[in-house]
């Protein structure tokens, strides 16, 4: 399956800056969509593709920081590159704490912005990949029966078949059968693989 084309969203209330940034980013062959306000961006349809946001901090009505919080609360994970005027240091600290990807000051040097965009897109690509894999694994793990899930927990915790049988009150042979089913349904190639998958699932759902 081919990866969908990445897209860069540019949000700035100043048309000239918006057009300049758009042109700059397009010149390296990336797809760009521009918005004159945070609200416009929120109501727009966003493609399911790796993306990042180039965001002016100081905008009337909904500021860049407000949008950042809204996206976070709405569970929309997208890397943000903030652009700010001079002297907004307390603001930048706040934005960084909230997980801003990069913070550039106006006027932004073209190369700095392009570098930041590439890095943000790469990170989004990785995150999307991780989310996709985690979803697949979750699907497989969910097909297990409750009994098999119990066995899985103990296997992953490093118990031997004998110990599992004792703990769950079943014969060792039954444990072996369950165990075989678990390996088959989760498509685990080895015990190590199974452990890795279950770890991954936990870490993604924790995020």
């Amino acid at each position: 399956m081919k990866e969908p084309e990445p897209v860069v969203f540019v949000i700035d209330d100043d048309r000239m800056i918006r057009d300049g940034l758009q042109s700059l980013i397009r010149s390296v062959g990336l797809r760009v969509e521009t918005f004159a306000s945070a609200q416009e961006f929120l109501v727009a349809k966003r493609p399911d593709a790796p993306a990042c946001l180039v965001l002016d901090v100081r905008m009337p009505e909904l500021s860049g920081l407000d949008l950042q919080l809204k996206l976070r609360d709405g569970g929309i994970p997208i890397p943000i590159i903030f652009i700010t005027g001079h002297g907004d240091i307390p603001m930048s600290v706040r934005a960084m704490k909230e997980g801003a990807h990069e913070f550039l000051t106006k006027p932004v040097r073209g190369q700095d912005l392009l570098d930041a965009v590439q890095k943000a897109l790469a990170s989004d690509r990785t995150l999307r990949q991780e989310r996709k894999e985690a979803n697949e694994i979750r699907g497989r793990f969910e097909s297990l029966t409750p009994r098999e899930k119990e066995v899985l927990e103990l296997v992953v915790a490093g118990l031997l078949n004998k110990q599992i049988a004792a703990q769950l009150g079943m014969s060792e042979l039954t444990v072996k059968t369950h165990r075989a089913h678990v390996m088959e349904k989760t498509q685990a190639e080895s015990l190590a693989h199974l452990v890795r998958m279950s770890e991954k699932l936990k870490s993604v759902s924790r995020k």
Binding site: D14, M16, I17, D19, G20, L21, S23, L24, S27, V28, I83, G85, H86, K106, P107, V108, R109, G110, Q111, L113, L114
Partner: peptide
């Protein structure tokens, strides 16, 4: 600063 930022962005785009 605002128009200057526009100048820089567009000039960089032009060069690119």
């Amino acid at each position: 600063n605002q128009p200057l930022a526009a100048v820089v962005a567009n000039a960089d785009a032009c060069v690119a």
